[in-house]
């Protein structure tokens, strides 16, 4: 018997680690992976709550999130490839053309 609190806490920790990854890493691919980690953290919380409340909808949401993440990764990686082609780099700090 594990309290749901523990799962939520784990989810939060994973989420924060993911956020840290987005914030401190410069490699676009790793940033992207961190985003996936954050999504995963959210999924974990969903499943945990679905289980504790005995409602299946949470799992359906996770299913949709996974589908959306797949789509996101496909497009995102395509973008990174496209950027790499022009910049010859995947350092996000070099992509600052919108600078004011």
């Amino acid at each position: 018997m594990v309290p749901v609190t523990y799962y939520v806490a784990l989810s939060a920790v994973l989420f924060i680690i993911g956020a840290m990854g987005v914030l401190v890493r410069r490699n676009a691919l790793i940033i992207f992976m961190s985003v996936e980690l954050m999504l995963n953290a959210a999924n974990l919380a969903f499943v945990a709550f679905a289980s504790v409340n005995n409602i299946l909808d949470g799992q359906i949401f996770v299913f949709f999130i996974i589908a959306v993440a797949a789509a996101e990764v496909a497009v995102g990686l395509a973008l990174i490839v496209a950027i790499f082609r022009t910049k010859k780099s995947i350092d996000v700090d070099q992509i600052n053309m919108l600078k004011g």
Partner: peptide, 16 residues
């Protein structure tokens, strides 16, 4: 305009 520095990471920081 310094805030608008074009670095996506710092924007993300602002979001956080």
């Amino acid at each position: 305009r310094r805030i608008q520095n074009g670095f996506v990471r710092s924007y993300a920081l602002s979001v956080l």
